[in-house]
Computed example of a mutant assay.
Amino acid sequence: MAKTAYFQDAAFQRHTMGPLHPESPMRLEAISKRLELSGILKDLRQVKAVEANAHQLELAHSIHHIQYLRDVSPASGEFPIDGDTTMMPHTLEAALLAAGSATQAVDCVFGKGASWGDRGIKRAFCAVRPPGHHAEREQAMGFCYFNNVAIAALHALETCKIKRVAILDFDVHNGNGTIDIFKDDPRVMVCSSFEHPLYPYKYVSVNRDNIICTPLEAHTTSRMFRRAVERSWLHRLQTFKPELIIISAGFDAHTLDPLASLNLETDDYRWVTDMIVDVARVYSEGRIVSCLEGGYHLEALAASVEAHLTALMQ
């Protein structure tokens, strides 16, 4: 069993955008309960998050964007960023901790720092809110404020003496923010599968060697998803030879999820994670950092995260 770190913080559940918003604290509650009942939680190295610092944020975002979020962060009440993304009193803290978890996870799988020395941890899962993959260099959107996986990838390139990182995004929504940040950076390969047409209605196809977009029609089945991902991702990853794999782990392509219309099953998340683990064993010494993105049917989300973690831990 691979040693796997699990990053969490109570602040992630203090962030809320209202009782009816799908990106709710109940998501992490459901995941925690499921992992406790399954017994997986006791086999994980549980780690409390720390906030990302200014330099880490500036790797992926402009100073203007970072300062804007600090300026509009309310002491009380709310500040709407867009129709479905709102700054609340605890949002900034949670967003900083989410980004910080991702950079800590990179340090963890590379054994950097005294706290990770000789622990042999090669995998990490960041159970974070808010998610990040819609956040572009200059724009918060789609429930996202800072792009957690982008910050993690750039932190790894800067501090871990590697040259190639792959970000694999199987959320039902296109990872537009991650593509926006890396479309002109050949050090990072971004593979994104997503339902089309569906929010955010951009970056459906990008003419870059390092950006692999895999649009899927509504009602795509397990078999169709697996065939599409294998066909579009696997050879490109084998050619790219990533030294670190980062996952944007969204579970909202599940057939029960209310925000989309793909028909994936829980076992598909085990399958796609197994595939990623196989690639990581060959090219990145097993190193994988996974960050929670979407997933809004609580039971399906919790079961899918369990399947994902079970595969990561092998």
Rank of each mutant, 00 (worst) to 15 (best):
S222H: 13
L259A: 10
T85W: 04
A153L: 15
V165Q: 06
A249R: 13
I245A: 07
H15P: 15
A124Y: 01
S222M: 11
I276Q: 14
E58N: 06
V188T: 01
P80L: 07
N210K: 15
E138N: 07
E217R: 15
I211P: 02
V172K: 06
R27Q: 00
L35N: 00
L301D: 04
V47Y: 02
H65P: 15
R281S: 07
S290E: 10
L59N: 08
V190I: 12
C108L: 09
A153W: 04
K163R: 13
R187N: 05
E93F: 03
L256D: 06
E230L: 14
N147D: 04
M88E: 03
A303H: 02
C213W: 06
D278K: 15
L244Q: 09
L256G: 07
G177L: 04
T85H: 01
L37S: 06
M26G: 08
D82L: 14
D9E: 04
G111H: 11
E299K: 10
Q104E: 11
S101T: 13
D184I: 06
H133A: 07
I151Q: 03
N176Q: 08
L262G: 03
N53C: 12
S290A: 09
L312D: 00
A249D: 07
H21M: 14
A300R: 12
A166G: 02
Q46F: 11
H134N: 10
H235T: 04
M87L: 15
Q238I: 14
G113A: 08
L20I: 08
A102E: 01
V50L: 15
A98M: 08
P74S: 10
A114N: 08
V272Y: 01
N176V: 03
G294P: 01
R231N: 11
H219C: 12
M189R: 01
E293S: 02
S32G: 04
F79C: 13
S232C: 14
L41I: 02
P19Y: 01
V172G: 01
Y269P: 00
E293I: 01
M189P: 02
E58A: 08
